[in-house]
Nucleic acid binder design. Structure first.
Ligand code: NAD
Ligand code: NAD
Lengths: 207, 207
DNA sequence: TTGTGCATGTGAACGCAATCACAAGTTCGG
DNA sequence: CCGAACTTGTGATTGCGTTCACATGCACAA
């Protein structure tokens, strides 16, 4: 492993920086200071400098950072240089939105396969991706897909996770509001949308 | 009861506990130990005890926690006792999924209004909620809606946020992958779905 | 060449959260 | 009433991440 001892929080911020930098680059800029970037992405400038410093000297004192160099550097750290294929399980409301979303490409992701257990959906296409029978999940192994996205009802989530693991998946992005048990070598990230909402009143209702 | 000096991380975990406890309660249980609950929601038992201890003595030594008492306690802390109305802006792919989602009710939320700027969508209904013209956002003030959900393209997000703030919103849940500037009194939570995905290779690709 | 302005990189200090270890309390069987 | 088996609550400790302050370095003008 090349990059040791890097705070997880730093890793969490890197995609934020990357997104901002790509946007700035598209706007024609090729250089930026930590404080300008900080204003743009909503992070303090010293935090940005500290984060970048974990990976060596990215910038030039007195001048700033070269945007292209930063983008390449972050992509390398996050290992986003190779295109990653992902598979979606559960082509319902949320699943369909994800299948139609073009924004994952920015980071080099392709959602290339979709699965469901509803006979009415199997065989249909969403954005050129054909929905397959969930019992055929094993095909992921053959197609070398290493990322799974779970968008099935909570009651099914653990079972689907088991199937994904058996199909050789290394990472799971889970939208079901529940804890999912997997072998240690598999990384699960759960996005609990309702959980975000649930904290709102605590912060906004004063009294 | 005043809750000062509580770690933000504790607040973040409370919805997780709440969700698990409600599920256990539906299963007919009325008591649980910190370690059993921990196994169920994926948190260490001492962490759970520590979290609860910030709010006084919720449990009984040697016995465990009474589920109903915990649920009521957490709801009070998070101020989830009153039903909260929320408004969605951007009835596209993601927005439609959110409008159709019944799971927010668990925490006492109702998405009661939806807005868009696309003439073809205005007037249509999704799950009995009529999509209104985004230029009518001011109506939130009258209807006493204090939460906004942003699901518009990134380029529009800041503008919509400004309009929401002007309409009296106190909290914004933002799905657009960008930083949003608001007055300090308004709480913004951004859920960057692609950002989660972007961190996957770092954790799963070894080498 | 020197001075001024600007921006990075980082050791050190600080603060918050995770983790530990155990005292204190409860239950139950006999 | 006693002892064994549990389980909570919390002070103490450790670890991690944020924040600060400033030394270091580049650019440019005169
Ligand atoms: N829609 C939202 O806004 C939202 C918000 C927060 C969380 N979530 C969570 O995301 C998940 C999906 O939500 P949704 O709104 O898309 O639900 P949905 O009911 O619209 O879609 C679920 C899909 O999963 C499929 N499915 C069910 N069991 C399956 C199985 N065993 N194998 C394969 N496919 C199966 C169904 O056929 C359906 O197409 C749920 O866990 C939900 O709690 C959704
Ligand atoms: N779909 C996903 O899976 C996904 C994933 C990650 C992030 N996001 C983000 O969520 C947001 C919405 O994504 P989506 O896939 O639903 O996009 P979408 O294009 O399907 O929907 C956007 C909706 O917003 C409406 N809109 C545009 N400008 C508006 C304005 N000024 N006022 C009111 N309404 C307006 C459009 O008419 C459309 O209905 C985007 O910012 C996207 O980056 C989506």
């Amino acid at each position: 492993m090349k990059h040791k001892g890097i705070p997880d929080e730093t890793i969490r911020r890197l995609p934020v920086y990357l997104r901002g930098l790509i946007f700035l680059q598209e706007g024609g800029q090729d250089r930026i200071s930590s404080s300008k970037l900080g204003d743009f992405v909503g992070v303090q400038s010293w935090q940005i400098r500290k984060d970048f410093s974990y990976f060596g000297e990215f910038g030039v004192r007195g001048v700033g950072y070269e945007i292209k160099k930063l983008i390449d550097g972050i992509k390398e750290i996050l290992k986003l240089n190779k295109v990653q294929n992902a598979a979606l399980v559960g082509a319902g409301n949320l699943g369909s939105a994800i299948l139609s979303y073009p924004g994952f490409e920015l980071y080099g992701f392709n959602v290339t396969m979709a699965f469901d257990n509803n006979a009415k959906k199997i065989g249909k296409k969403i954005k050129s991706i054909e929905i397959m029978d969930v019992s055929k999940l094993d095909i992921l192994k053959k197609k070398n897909v290493r990322l799974g996205i779970i968008a099935v009802p909570r009651s099914e989530a653990q079972e689907i996770a088991n199937a994904l693991v058996k199909a050789g998946v290394k990472g799971i992005l889970n939208f079901s509001p529940c804890y999912i048990m997997v072998p240690k070598k598999v990384k699960v990230m759960t996005i609990d949308i309702a959980g975000y909402l649930a904290r709102m009143p605590y912060y906004t209702l004063n009294g």
